[in-house]
Simulated assay, not measured.
Amino acid sequence: MEHLSIKLDDLPDEILLIIFKKLDNFAILYSLIGVNKRLHKIAHDPDFTRHLTLFKHLKYASVSALPDSTLSRFCLQIVPEIHHKIKWLNVEPASMEHIFLAKNYPNLYGLGVYGIDVSSAISLFTVESKTTFIDGNDLKENIINHMSRLNTFTFSIRSLVDLRNQTELRSNEDIQHTFKNFKYNQIISYVDHFQEKQYSQCHIYSYPNKRKCWNNITNNFPGGLYKYVREVSLYDERPFEHEYFLRIGEAFPFMEELTINNKKPQMNKLHRESKSGNEDFSIIKYPHLTRVKFLAVHDDYVEQFLVDTTMCLPNNVFLAVCGQALERVTENFTRNTTRINCAKLRLVYLVGKYEITQQLKDYFPHTNVVRRLV
């Protein structure tokens, strides 16, 4: 760092500011405060102190807490110098308490909470048992009412509740009512009650939202535009129809990875097939898609993605699928309407016990087919 500071000292302040503004604010503060008087003063510039992200970004939606030693030094040595200048904080659950106990933030008006799961949310919002959803009342009582200057609050929280512990099933209207007079971003919510697995789910989030991953999206997903999302997973105990996949494409135009988990057959499939030429059904296009994973799925969804009259896959797609399901959908690797999309696959993982036959190889002449036992 001493060698670096000598080189930096050769540059005028104007050039240093241009360089530093292209770097992460946390890195600037952590690296420059205390080095020498000149760099220390530059690090205190409002451009570097007003908006801080105090976690590490991993792939897609994942976030990771800062190392304990890094966070401790920041909270003990740096926060006391700049706490009154901080106007926006992005944090993750594991380090929230440490950060907020370090000092008061009198000018904080924006808070982003990322990577929060159900157990963390329940702890954070002091819900004593998993018998109710986290809602607007919890956010107001446990966070917002304690931050008088807060005027922006971004979040995404999913609550799971055992159906057997519920005396009354809450509706989405009930949840939305708790956000009445909520003065921040638009708040979107949707509720699902899964009778087979005996649990309920409620997802509440601020909109617009910059999350890069959206998990367990059901038929009740209200839509919108999420241009930052790259990874999506779908789950429901009700079937996903063709129109649902169209809505997913509209909501996540830059989606790269898609995982599907649904064992229910499509109800409108026969109606779609009865239409001559399928003129009433738009072909689905996910132009940025690179990976598709079928977990526990009905054959209809494999067919939905491989038949060229319902889906137009981009080139070089990775596909993970049950070998038996692939055989059935391609009619033992002879079906013409699945050849075009199958030819676009770069890699196929055959999940489960399945022998790679010569007929399969001939059907995928330019695709790397790998058998994967699970």
Rank of each mutant, 00 (worst) to 15 (best):
Phe194Val: 13
Phe194Ser: 09
Gln195Cys: 06
Lys197His: 02
Lys197Val: 14
Gln201Pro: 00
Gln201Leu: 11
Ile204Asn: 10
Tyr205Arg: 03
Trp214Asn: 07
Trp214Leu: 01
Trp214His: 11
Asn216Glu: 12
Asn216Gly: 05
Asn216Thr: 08
Ile217Tyr: 03
Ile217His: 07
Thr218Ile: 13
Asn219Cys: 14
Phe221Pro: 13
Pro222Ile: 01
Gly224Asn: 13
Leu225Lys: 06
Tyr226Val: 00
Tyr228Gly: 03
Val229Ala: 09
Val229Gly: 09
Arg230Thr: 10
Arg230Val: 00
Val232Asp: 09
Glu237Arg: 09
Pro239Ile: 15
Glu241Arg: 06
His242Thr: 15
Tyr244Gly: 05
Leu246Pro: 07
Leu246Asn: 02
Ile248Tyr: 15
Ile248His: 04
Ile248Asp: 13
Glu250Thr: 10
Ala251Val: 03
Phe254Asn: 14
Glu256His: 09
Leu258Pro: 11
Thr259Ile: 08
Lys263Asn: 08
Lys263Leu: 00
Lys264Cys: 07
Pro265Glu: 07
Asn268Val: 10
Asn268Cys: 05
Arg272Asp: 12
Glu273Ala: 01
Glu273Gln: 01
Ser274Gln: 12
Lys275Ile: 03
Lys275His: 11
Asn278Thr: 11
Phe281Tyr: 00
Ser282Asp: 14
Ser282Val: 04
Ile283Tyr: 05
Ile284Ala: 11
Ile284Phe: 12
Tyr286His: 08
Tyr286Asp: 00
His288Val: 00
Leu289Ala: 06
Lys293Glu: 09
Leu295His: 07
Val297Thr: 10
His298Asp: 03
His298Thr: 07
Val302His: 07
Glu303Asn: 15
Gln304Trp: 04
Gln304Leu: 06
Phe305Val: 10
Leu306His: 01
